[in-house]
Amino acid sequence: MDVKKSPLKISNLVKRYGSYTAVDNVSFEMKPGEIFGLLGPNGAGKTSIISCIVTLQKPDEGECTIFGQNPMDHPLDAKMHLGYVPQEIINHGYFTVEEILVFHSGFLKTWNNKEKIHYLLNRLGLWEHRNKKVKALSGGMKRRLLIAKALVHDPKLLLLDEPTAGVDIELRNSLWEFVMELKAEGMSVLLTTHYLEEAEQLCDRVGVIQQGKLRKVGPTKDLIEQLTQRQVSLIFRGDCANGIKSKYLVDVEDDTARFLIPQDLGIGELITEVDCEIKNLLDIRISEGSLEDAFVRILGEGRDQ
């Protein structure tokens, strides 16, 4: 493995199921140590991309490489550096939580791995449940087990496919905290999630996928800046709001004038542009653009194409 190479590089990936194209010529590259969010509506092709990375599906065209190695050509090497948390729960009917981790560790060539397994059991709140069979666990606990399995061999790249789908807020928060710890240790993380607020907080960069096509990819902050506007409400004394004129003005209601301004325009510049008397200005309320706003805009533009 060459750690200097990109943890994950997707090049012109195409995946078809019969006549349906689930992934349509997708390319992107992750940087070492970053959290990359792959976002998109249901059926956009996110899980198909991940399935191709982990070799559950064979790409029809293009390739994925993990630290420079194609897992289709070098499965035994490439998979050693990969931790995968699937979207759906695995129900290992026969075994206990600890046994599953021991076996998974062995599949990844790591024997006598008790220390790491016990650390993960404790860190993910599974210690009390280590002797239970999976079917006796709650949905949240099963998901924690999937995460423990993915980390049992200290992978360099972690794929999280909707890891917080259907789990409570407490687990979500503790999971994200854990993911940030892993990132701090140098792990690269590819994440798919429907929770855009979380993606905004966690992801260094995001890619938005729609109908199998990658519509936009870039640093999260840049996308928000480029694709959203700040909503500014100026609240005036008396009926002063009615006289306001500005190219950024959206509407006036009672004492409040609402503006949508570009992310790079300062509030001072807006007030100068509005040319109002400061003594009449009672309050300023600012609502920043979010990843969700950017996401909605990207999807809207995608639909128009």
């Binding site: 982990v54 070799t55 559950l56 499965p75 035994l76 090497d77 998979k79 050693m80 990969l82 995968y84 699937p86 759906e88 729960i89 695995i90 129900n91 290992h92 009917g93 026969y94 998974h104 599949f107 990844l108 060539k109 399995k149």
Partner: peptide, 18 residues
Amino acid sequence: VSGKFGGDLEDWKVVPLS
């Protein structure tokens, strides 16, 4: 068959098992 039903087979595919 139980692996297909429970999802264990996916595990075998994503680890370095030839």
